[in-house]
Simulated assay, not measured.
Amino acid sequence: MKTLQLEYIKRRRQTLGISLQEMAEWLGFKNASTYLKYEAGTYAFKAEQLPGLAGILNCEINDFFAQKVAKTAI
């Protein structure tokens, strides 16, 4: 199962110098604190929001995900 990597989204936004308020406006959220709840994992991004998020962050949707790999004993 793939897991959305919220830390990647946050780092990418910060690297590009995009504020929480700008993200909120571009994604159609009421304010920066609402967007922050998505980035922090309080709310879950919906699938239809991911293309817009990728466009803003200039990356691929697949960049948001990491494959969960089970650890095995040696």
Rank of each mutant, 00 (worst) to 15 (best):
M1F: 05
M1R: 08
K2T: 01
K2V: 03
K2G: 01
K2D: 03
L4W: 03
Q5H: 02
Q5C: 04
E7W: 00
Y8Q: 01
Y8R: 01
K10W: 00
K10P: 00
K10L: 02
R11L: 06
R12Q: 03
R12M: 00
R12A: 01
Q14R: 12
T15H: 07
L16V: 02
L16K: 15
G17R: 04
G17V: 02
I18Y: 10
S19L: 10
Q21R: 13
Q21M: 10
Q21C: 06
M23S: 09
M23L: 15
A24D: 12
A24I: 08
W26G: 02
W26E: 13
W26M: 14
L27A: 09
G28D: 05
F29W: 09
N31K: 11
A32F: 09
A32D: 13
S33I: 11
T34I: 14
T34D: 14
T34L: 10
T34R: 09
Y38H: 14
E39H: 03
A40K: 15
T42I: 09
T42Y: 14
A44L: 02
A44I: 01
F45S: 05
F45W: 11
A47W: 01
A47N: 04
A47C: 02
E48I: 05
E48T: 07
E48L: 04
L50N: 03
P51C: 05
P51T: 03
G52R: 07
L53C: 06
L53V: 08
A54V: 04
A54T: 03
A54L: 03
A54N: 07
G55Y: 09
G55A: 08
I56T: 04
L57P: 14
N58F: 00
C59T: 15
I61Q: 09
I61V: 15
N62T: 09
N62W: 05
N62P: 00
N62H: 13
F64H: 00
F64G: 01
F65K: 01
F65N: 02
A66D: 06
A66K: 11
A66L: 06
Q67I: 07
V69D: 12
A70P: 05
A70T: 14
K71P: 14
K71W: 10
K71F: 12
T72Q: 14
A73S: 15
A73L: 13
I74F: 11
